[in-house]
């Protein structure tokens, strides 16, 4: 929707709850996107660069669950 149509919550409780919900949505989106990239053969450094974080951070956050799911991961370079 055009920027001028985006509502701005007037009640602080709604604005704060929107922050919580957006963080949750971003986390869910990150989990799904990282898995999609790794299944498509992306490397940890490339995923890290795309997310704007260190490769150590992305590896620490996602490696265990992807290994548990049997995703074939490229070796860290």
């Amino acid at each position: 929707m055009p920027a001028e149509d985006v509502p701005v919550p007037k009640d602080p409780a709604d604005a704060l709850a929107a922050v919580v919900a957006l963080r949750r949505l971003a986390d869910q989106l990150e989990d799904a996107a990282v898995e999609q990239a790794m299944r498509a053969g992306w490397s940890w450094p490339d995923v890290a660069e795309a997310l704007g974080v260190t490769r150590q951070a992305v590896h620490k956050k996602h490696a265990k669950r992807l290994i548990a799911a049997g995703v074939v991961l490229r070796r860290r370079q």
């Binding site: 509502p7 929107a18 799904a32």
Partner: peptide
């Protein structure tokens, strides 16, 4: 409340 619709995201279920 901030103009985001969950219906716009067709997220695959992450492991």
């Amino acid at each position: 409340a901030v103009g985001v619709s969950l219906a716009s995201f067709d997220l695959p279920r992450p492991s």
